[in-house]
Protein backbone atom coordinates (compact mmCIF):
# COMPACT_ATOMS: atom_id res chain seq x y z
CA UNK A 1 0.00 0.00 0.00
CA UNK A 2 2.80 2.31 0.97
CA UNK A 3 4.38 1.88 -2.41
CA UNK A 4 1.18 2.85 -4.20
CA UNK A 5 1.01 6.16 -2.32
CA UNK A 6 4.66 6.71 -2.99
CA UNK A 7 4.17 6.20 -6.70
CA UNK A 8 1.07 8.40 -6.78
CA UNK A 9 2.98 11.16 -5.03
CA UNK A 10 5.74 10.93 -7.55
CA UNK A 11 3.30 11.08 -10.46
CA UNK A 12 1.67 14.19 -9.01
CA UNK A 13 5.04 15.87 -8.71
CA UNK A 14 5.46 15.14 -12.39
CA UNK A 15 2.54 17.30 -13.53
CA UNK A 16 4.21 20.74 -13.22
CA UNK A 17 7.43 19.31 -14.67
CA UNK A 18 5.56 18.03 -17.71
CA UNK A 19 3.71 21.29 -18.27
CA UNK A 20 7.04 23.10 -18.25
CA UNK A 21 8.74 20.64 -20.56
CA UNK A 22 5.89 20.48 -23.05
CA UNK A 23 5.61 24.26 -23.21
CA UNK A 24 9.32 24.62 -23.94
CA UNK A 25 9.30 21.80 -26.52
CA UNK A 26 6.20 23.23 -28.15
CA UNK A 27 7.59 26.73 -28.44
CA UNK A 28 11.08 25.66 -29.54
CA UNK A 29 9.61 23.64 -32.39
CA UNK A 30 7.49 26.53 -33.56
CA UNK A 31 10.43 28.93 -33.46
CA UNK A 32 12.55 26.69 -35.71
CA UNK A 33 12.42 27.77 -39.34
CA UNK A 34 10.80 25.28 -41.68
CA UNK A 35 7.20 24.16 -41.36
CA UNK A 36 5.80 20.69 -42.04
CA UNK A 37 3.54 21.63 -44.94
CA UNK A 38 6.35 23.34 -46.87
CA UNK A 39 8.68 20.45 -46.14
CA UNK A 40 6.14 17.89 -47.29
CA UNK A 41 5.25 19.60 -50.53
CA UNK A 42 8.68 21.07 -51.23
CA UNK A 43 9.29 21.51 -54.91
CA UNK A 44 5.89 20.21 -55.87
CA UNK A 45 3.47 22.56 -54.18
CA UNK A 46 2.53 26.17 -54.77
CA UNK A 47 1.51 28.65 -52.07
CA UNK A 48 -2.12 27.59 -52.36
CA UNK A 49 -1.31 23.87 -51.88
CA UNK A 50 0.83 24.68 -48.86
CA UNK A 51 -1.89 26.82 -47.29
CA UNK A 52 -4.45 24.06 -47.86
CA UNK A 53 -2.22 21.45 -46.24
CA UNK A 54 -1.45 23.77 -43.31
CA UNK A 55 -5.19 24.16 -42.77
CA UNK A 56 -5.75 20.41 -43.07
CA UNK A 57 -3.07 19.77 -40.45
CA UNK A 58 -4.65 22.31 -38.10
CA UNK A 59 -1.46 24.37 -38.04
CA UNK A 60 -3.26 27.56 -39.05
CA UNK A 61 -4.89 27.81 -35.62
CA UNK A 62 -3.51 30.25 -33.03
CA UNK A 63 -0.59 28.80 -31.07
CA UNK A 64 -2.41 28.69 -27.74
CA UNK A 65 -5.23 26.66 -29.27
CA UNK A 66 -2.73 24.20 -30.68
CA UNK A 67 -1.01 23.92 -27.29
CA UNK A 68 -4.28 23.34 -25.43
CA UNK A 69 -5.23 20.75 -28.05
CA UNK A 70 -1.90 19.05 -27.49
CA UNK A 71 -2.41 18.93 -23.70
CA UNK A 72 -5.86 17.43 -24.34
CA UNK A 73 -4.30 14.78 -26.58
CA UNK A 74 -1.85 13.86 -23.79
CA UNK A 75 -4.70 13.38 -21.35
CA UNK A 76 -6.51 11.03 -23.74
CA UNK A 77 -3.27 9.14 -24.30
CA UNK A 78 -3.41 9.43 -28.10
CA UNK A 79 -0.85 12.29 -28.13
CA UNK A 80 -2.48 13.47 -31.36
CA UNK A 81 -1.88 12.32 -34.92
CA UNK A 82 1.54 12.24 -36.52
CA UNK A 83 1.80 14.71 -39.38
CA UNK A 84 4.01 12.39 -41.40
CA UNK A 85 2.30 9.04 -40.97
CA UNK A 86 -1.20 10.18 -39.89
CA UNK A 87 -1.18 7.56 -37.13
CA UNK A 88 -1.70 8.09 -33.42
CA UNK A 89 1.53 9.34 -31.86
CA UNK A 90 0.89 7.18 -28.78
CA UNK A 91 0.88 4.09 -30.97
CA UNK A 92 4.05 5.11 -32.80
CA UNK A 93 5.83 5.71 -29.52
CA UNK A 94 4.77 2.42 -27.94
CA UNK A 95 6.09 0.54 -30.99
CA UNK A 96 9.44 2.27 -30.64
CA UNK A 97 9.56 2.15 -26.84
CA UNK A 98 10.54 -1.50 -26.52
CA UNK A 99 13.79 -1.43 -28.50
CA UNK A 100 14.94 1.59 -26.50
CA UNK A 101 13.94 0.07 -23.16
CA UNK A 102 15.64 -3.19 -24.08
CA UNK A 103 18.78 -1.33 -25.11
CA UNK A 104 18.91 0.80 -21.97
CA UNK A 105 18.05 -2.19 -19.75
CA UNK A 106 20.60 -4.49 -21.31
CA UNK A 107 23.32 -1.86 -21.21
CA UNK A 108 22.60 -1.21 -17.54
CA UNK A 109 22.84 -4.92 -16.79
CA UNK A 110 26.16 -5.06 -18.63
CA UNK A 111 27.39 -2.04 -16.72
CA UNK A 112 26.42 -3.52 -13.35
CA UNK A 113 27.86 -6.92 -14.18
CA UNK A 114 31.15 -5.29 -15.15
CA UNK A 115 31.19 -2.75 -12.34
CA UNK A 116 30.80 -4.87 -9.19
CA UNK A 117 33.62 -7.40 -9.67
CA UNK A 118 35.99 -4.97 -11.41
CA UNK A 119 35.51 -2.22 -8.82
CA UNK A 120 36.04 -4.72 -5.99
CA UNK A 121 39.17 -6.02 -7.67
CA UNK A 122 40.51 -2.48 -8.27
CA UNK A 123 39.82 -1.43 -4.71
CA UNK A 124 41.20 -4.50 -3.01
CA UNK A 125 44.32 -4.57 -5.19
CA UNK A 126 44.61 -0.80 -5.19
CA UNK A 127 47.57 0.40 -7.27
CA UNK A 128 48.26 -3.12 -8.54
CA UNK A 129 48.53 -3.99 -12.20
CA UNK A 130 44.87 -5.08 -12.38
CA UNK A 131 43.77 -1.72 -10.99
CA UNK A 132 45.93 0.13 -13.51
CA UNK A 133 44.74 -2.02 -16.41
CA UNK A 134 41.09 -1.54 -15.54
CA UNK A 135 41.61 2.19 -15.21
CA UNK A 136 43.32 2.35 -18.58
CA UNK A 137 40.76 0.31 -20.49
CA UNK A 138 37.74 2.14 -19.15
CA UNK A 139 39.18 5.60 -19.48
CA UNK A 140 39.82 4.70 -23.12
CA UNK A 141 36.23 3.45 -23.47
CA UNK A 142 34.86 6.59 -21.87
CA UNK A 143 36.95 8.93 -23.98
CA UNK A 144 35.83 7.45 -27.26
CA UNK A 145 32.65 8.87 -28.79
CA UNK A 146 29.87 6.26 -28.87
CA UNK A 147 29.73 6.10 -32.67
CA UNK A 148 33.47 5.53 -32.87
CA UNK A 149 33.55 2.85 -30.19
CA UNK A 150 30.54 1.29 -31.90
CA UNK A 151 32.28 1.13 -35.26
CA UNK A 152 35.43 -0.32 -33.67
CA UNK A 153 33.41 -3.04 -31.96
CA UNK A 154 31.61 -3.78 -35.22
CA UNK A 155 34.91 -4.13 -37.06
CA UNK A 156 36.23 -6.41 -34.31
CA UNK A 157 33.19 -8.51 -33.40
CA UNK A 158 31.13 -8.45 -36.60
CA UNK A 159 33.66 -8.32 -39.41
CA UNK A 160 36.98 -9.72 -38.11
CA UNK A 161 35.39 -12.28 -35.77
CA UNK A 162 31.77 -12.46 -36.92
CA UNK A 163 29.99 -13.14 -33.65
CA UNK A 164 27.44 -10.35 -33.70
CA UNK A 165 25.45 -8.80 -36.57
CA UNK A 166 26.72 -5.44 -37.87
CA UNK A 167 23.46 -3.69 -37.11
CA UNK A 168 19.71 -4.05 -37.15
CA UNK A 169 17.21 -5.33 -34.62
CA UNK A 170 16.50 -8.92 -35.64
CA UNK A 171 13.40 -11.03 -35.07
CA UNK A 172 12.09 -12.69 -31.95
CA UNK A 173 13.39 -12.28 -28.41
CA UNK A 174 16.68 -14.07 -29.04
CA UNK A 175 17.20 -12.26 -32.33
CA UNK A 176 16.64 -8.90 -30.61
CA UNK A 177 19.10 -9.77 -27.83
CA UNK A 178 21.68 -10.93 -30.33
CA UNK A 179 21.38 -7.68 -32.27
CA UNK A 180 21.30 -5.52 -29.15
CA UNK A 181 24.41 -7.07 -27.60
CA UNK A 182 26.97 -4.83 -29.32
CA UNK A 183 25.11 -1.51 -28.98
CA UNK A 184 24.36 -2.36 -25.35
CA UNK A 185 28.03 -3.10 -24.84
CA UNK A 186 28.95 0.31 -26.28
CA UNK A 187 26.64 2.09 -23.85
CA UNK A 188 27.42 -0.32 -21.01
CA UNK A 189 31.17 0.24 -21.30
CA UNK A 190 30.66 3.98 -21.12
CA UNK A 191 28.47 3.64 -18.04
CA UNK A 192 30.79 1.12 -16.40
CA UNK A 193 33.71 3.50 -16.86
CA UNK A 194 31.95 5.96 -14.57
CA UNK A 195 30.50 3.54 -12.06
CA UNK A 196 33.69 1.52 -11.62
CA UNK A 197 35.56 4.68 -10.59
CA UNK A 198 32.78 5.69 -8.23
CA UNK A 199 32.34 2.29 -6.64
CA UNK A 200 36.09 1.78 -6.34
CA UNK A 201 36.55 4.96 -4.34
CA UNK A 202 33.62 4.32 -2.03
CA UNK A 203 34.84 0.77 -1.44
CA UNK A 204 38.25 2.14 -0.54
CA UNK A 205 36.57 4.50 1.92
CA UNK A 206 34.48 1.75 3.47
CA UNK A 207 37.46 -0.60 3.70
CA UNK A 208 39.05 1.83 6.15
CA UNK A 209 35.95 2.01 8.36
CA UNK A 210 35.95 0.63 11.92
CA UNK A 211 33.03 -1.74 11.37
CA UNK A 212 35.02 -3.57 8.72
CA UNK A 213 37.78 -4.18 11.24
CA UNK A 214 35.05 -5.36 13.63
CA UNK A 215 33.67 -7.74 11.02
CA UNK A 216 37.09 -9.14 10.38
CA UNK A 217 37.83 -9.32 14.09
CA UNK A 218 34.79 -11.43 14.76
CA UNK A 219 36.24 -13.97 12.35
CA UNK A 220 34.04 -13.50 9.28
CA UNK A 221 35.60 -14.93 6.13
CA UNK A 222 37.04 -12.19 3.83
CA UNK A 223 34.55 -13.02 1.06
CA UNK A 224 31.66 -12.40 3.40
CA UNK A 225 33.22 -9.17 4.66
CA UNK A 226 33.58 -7.89 1.13
CA UNK A 227 30.16 -8.83 -0.21
CA UNK A 228 27.97 -8.24 2.83
CA UNK A 229 29.64 -5.39 4.58
CA UNK A 230 31.87 -3.53 2.18
CA UNK A 231 29.86 -3.72 -1.01
CA UNK A 232 26.48 -3.04 0.53
CA UNK A 233 27.75 0.03 2.28
CA UNK A 234 29.48 1.31 -0.83
CA UNK A 235 26.63 1.02 -3.28
CA UNK A 236 24.59 4.12 -2.45
CA UNK A 237 26.60 6.70 -4.33
CA UNK A 238 27.05 4.35 -7.25
CA UNK A 239 23.29 3.90 -7.55
CA UNK A 240 22.86 7.67 -7.74
CA UNK A 241 25.48 7.93 -10.44
CA UNK A 242 23.96 5.03 -12.33
CA UNK A 243 20.52 6.63 -12.18
CA UNK A 244 21.72 10.02 -13.37
CA UNK A 245 23.81 8.45 -16.08
CA UNK A 246 21.01 6.17 -17.28
CA UNK A 247 18.69 9.16 -17.58
CA UNK A 248 21.34 10.74 -19.72
CA UNK A 249 21.76 7.52 -21.72
CA UNK A 250 18.09 7.59 -22.67
CA UNK A 251 18.66 10.87 -24.44
CA UNK A 252 21.96 9.57 -25.76
CA UNK A 253 20.50 6.44 -27.37
CA UNK A 254 19.90 8.61 -30.44
CA UNK A 255 23.49 8.14 -31.59
CA UNK A 256 23.80 4.45 -30.79
CA UNK A 257 20.38 3.66 -32.30
CA UNK A 258 21.41 5.43 -35.49
CA UNK A 259 24.80 3.69 -35.72
CA UNK A 260 23.27 0.28 -35.12
CA UNK A 261 19.98 0.78 -36.95
CA UNK A 262 17.77 0.05 -33.95
CA UNK A 263 14.19 1.22 -34.46
CA UNK A 264 13.87 2.92 -31.07
CA UNK A 265 12.65 6.25 -29.74
CA UNK A 266 15.89 8.08 -30.57
CA UNK A 267 15.67 6.98 -34.18
CA UNK A 268 12.06 8.20 -34.30
CA UNK A 269 13.05 11.51 -32.71
CA UNK A 270 15.69 12.31 -35.33
CA UNK A 271 13.34 11.49 -38.21
CA UNK A 272 10.51 13.50 -36.65
CA UNK A 273 12.62 16.60 -36.04
CA UNK A 274 13.80 16.53 -39.66
CA UNK A 275 10.21 16.30 -40.87
CA UNK A 276 9.04 18.93 -38.34
CA UNK A 277 6.51 16.33 -37.20
CA UNK A 278 5.44 18.50 -34.25
CA UNK A 279 3.06 16.05 -32.52
CA UNK A 280 5.62 13.23 -32.52
CA UNK A 281 8.45 15.42 -31.19
CA UNK A 282 6.15 16.79 -28.49
CA UNK A 283 4.98 13.30 -27.58
CA UNK A 284 8.55 12.04 -27.41
CA UNK A 285 9.51 14.90 -25.11
CA UNK A 286 6.84 13.76 -22.69
CA UNK A 287 7.89 10.14 -23.14
CA UNK A 288 11.56 10.88 -22.39
CA UNK A 289 10.56 12.87 -19.32
CA UNK A 290 8.46 9.94 -18.10
CA UNK A 291 11.34 7.54 -18.63
CA UNK A 292 13.73 9.72 -16.65
CA UNK A 293 11.22 9.93 -13.82
CA UNK A 294 10.76 6.14 -13.95
CA UNK A 295 14.50 5.60 -13.64
CA UNK A 296 14.72 7.88 -10.65
CA UNK A 297 11.86 5.94 -9.08
CA UNK A 298 13.76 2.71 -9.64
CA UNK A 299 16.82 4.27 -8.05
CA UNK A 300 14.75 5.24 -4.98
CA UNK A 301 13.47 1.69 -4.70
CA UNK A 302 17.04 0.41 -5.03
CA UNK A 303 18.21 2.66 -2.15
CA UNK A 304 15.54 1.17 0.06
CA UNK A 305 16.51 -2.34 -0.95
CA UNK A 306 20.19 -1.69 -0.18
CA UNK A 307 19.81 0.38 2.96
CA UNK A 308 17.28 -0.97 5.48
CA UNK A 309 17.34 2.35 7.37
CA UNK A 310 15.55 4.06 4.50
CA UNK A 311 11.80 3.80 3.90
CA UNK A 312 9.62 4.92 1.04
CA UNK A 313 7.90 7.52 3.19
CA UNK A 314 11.00 9.72 2.97
Amino acid sequence: MKIVWFLLGRLLQLVPVLIGITAVAFLLLRVMPGDPATLMLGARGNAEDIAALTRQLGLDRPLWQQYVGFLGDIVTGSFGLSIASRRAVGLEMVERLWPTLALVGLSTVIAVVLTVPLALLSAVRRGGWADQAIKLVFIAAMSMPAFWLGLLLVLLLSIAVPIFPVSGYGDGLLGHLHHLALPALVIGLGTAALTIRALRSSIIGVLGADYIDTARAKGLPERSVLWRHVLRNSLMSTISILAVHTSWVIGGTVVVETVFGIPGLGHLLVASISARDYPVVQGLTVMFALLVVAINLLADLAYVAVDPRLTLAG
Binding site: S158, P162, P165, V166, S167, G168, G261
Partner: peptide, 18 residues
Protein backbone atom coordinates in the same frame (compact mmCIF):
# COMPACT_ATOMS: atom_id res chain seq x y z
CA UNK B 1 13.72 -3.62 -46.93
CA UNK B 2 15.84 -2.90 -43.88
CA UNK B 3 16.09 0.61 -42.48
CA UNK B 4 19.68 1.55 -41.64
CA UNK B 5 20.23 5.29 -41.45
CA UNK B 6 23.98 5.03 -40.87
CA UNK B 7 25.96 4.89 -44.13
CA UNK B 8 28.83 2.89 -42.67
CA UNK B 9 26.59 0.24 -41.20
CA UNK B 10 24.86 -0.37 -44.53
CA UNK B 11 28.21 -0.75 -46.25
CA UNK B 12 29.56 -3.06 -43.52
CA UNK B 13 26.40 -5.17 -43.52
CA UNK B 14 26.69 -5.67 -47.26
CA UNK B 15 30.33 -6.69 -46.90
CA UNK B 16 29.44 -9.07 -44.07
CA UNK B 17 26.73 -10.67 -46.22
CA UNK B 18 23.93 -9.56 -43.90
Amino acid sequence: IEILPEDNSRVLKLKAGE
